[in-house]
């Protein structure tokens, strides 16, 4: 039982990391109708900048702020140079161009930081851990990461639902031309959304740094999960991204933990050891398919 609680906590915390990435992605996708595959490399960029700033700018906390800001700026530069020319083009053009950005940025990162994985140390203040079950200590840092996810969710929900900018974002998501015709600077709105999205991805990258290895290509795995999250949650919806991120985090973690054991219990022999992981890694896609079958626009579609 206690193991189940621990695994649920792990799942929730993975969900929060996913949310930080999916939040930016869903806004960009929802508001700008822009498929940005390069969102994952912005996460990677954040992690690498975090490593560099932590070493040269006085530790984890300054690095968190600086890396998020620089990642946001880098997103704006990419928007200016490349993405701007893709708005209104077909999805295929967008996918191809942003895929090119992935390859290019991965190689640039390799040239600058080398191909060996790097380490980002945990901040001193959060490196403690507490006893959760016998023999297992839970790092405070992971709880803090989940907390940061909730905080960002509340903040974003407030901005999107309660402020003028948020109103424009919502309006832009449902009818771009109309908002433009009313005299709103759509280009500026897009840049703002894009910059914030890139910043959140960079922020997530720094936060993930102490838990995972910082290496070229680290964003790609997470990107696929983030797309699953925004499809389940409904494109353009922050609330949807939050709920879906928690669902995906929980299903993925609990699925891996429980299904493999269930498969071993039900079946015997070497087949069971293979079947479990195979089914477990399919699980979130099955959930996605089920959600889409019932609600084709996701759980909380941005209202048209």
């Amino acid at each position: 039982m206690i193991l189940f609680v621990v695994q649920a906590l792990n799942g929730f915390q993975l969900g929060m990391l996913l949310f930080l990435i999916a939040a930016g992605l869903t806004l960009v996708f929802g508001v700008m109708k822009f498929v940005n595959l390069a969102h994952g490399v912005q996460y990677m960029l954040g992690a690498y900048l975090g490593v560099t700033f932590a070493a040269h700018a006085g530790g984890f906390w300054p690095a968190l702020v600086l890396a998020s800001v620089v990642a946001g700026l880098a997103g704006l530069v990419l928007e200016r140079l490349i993405f701007r020319h893709l708005y209104g083009r077909s999805e295929l053009d967008q996918v191809l161009a942003t895929f090119g950005v992935i390859i290019t940025l991965n190689e640039i990162v390799r040239v600058i930081w080398g191909s060996s994985p790097l380490e980002l140390a945990m901040p001193e203040g959060l490196s403690a851990s507490f006893q959760l079950m016998e023999g297992l200590r839970y790092p405070v840092y992971r709880v803090a990461l989940a907390g940061a996810g909730i905080l960002v969710a509340v903040l974003l929900a407030f901005v999107v639902n309660r402020t003028r900018v948020g109103m424009l974002i919502r309006a832009g998501a449902s009818n771009q031309e109309m908002v433009g015709a009313l005299g709103v600077d759509i280009g500026g709105l897009f840049r703002l959304v894009f910059g914030v999205g890139a910043m959140l991805a960079g922020f997530a990258g720094v936060l993930a740094g102490p838990l995972v290895s910082v290496e070229p290509g680290m964003g790609e795995n997470l990107l696929i999960l983030a797309f699953v999250v925004i499809v389940i949650g409904g494109v353009g919806s922050i609330r949807g991204a939050f709920v879906a991120a928690v669902i995906v985090g929980l299903v993925d973690t609990l699925g891996r933990a429980m299904i493999t054991d269930a498969a071993k219990a039900l079946l015997s022999g070497p087949a069971s050891a293979r079947l479990g992981p195979a089914v477990a890694s399919m699980l979130i896609y099955l959930v996605m398919a089920a959600v889409l079958a019932v609600r084709p626009t996701g759980l909380f579609p941005a209202r048209a």
């Binding site: 792990n10 915390q13 079950m133 680290m218 795995n221 973690t253 933990a257 050891a273 992981p277 890694s281």
Partner: peptide, 23 residues
């Protein structure tokens, strides 16, 4: 326990909790 994880898995916390529980 003989556990197989996906090649692209990032978070190993779930396996670590299982290890702690299996002692």
């Amino acid at each position: 326990s003989e556990d197989y994880v996906p090649l692209n898995q990032m978070d190993m916390q779930s396996e670590i909790a299982k290890i702690a529980s299996a002692k």
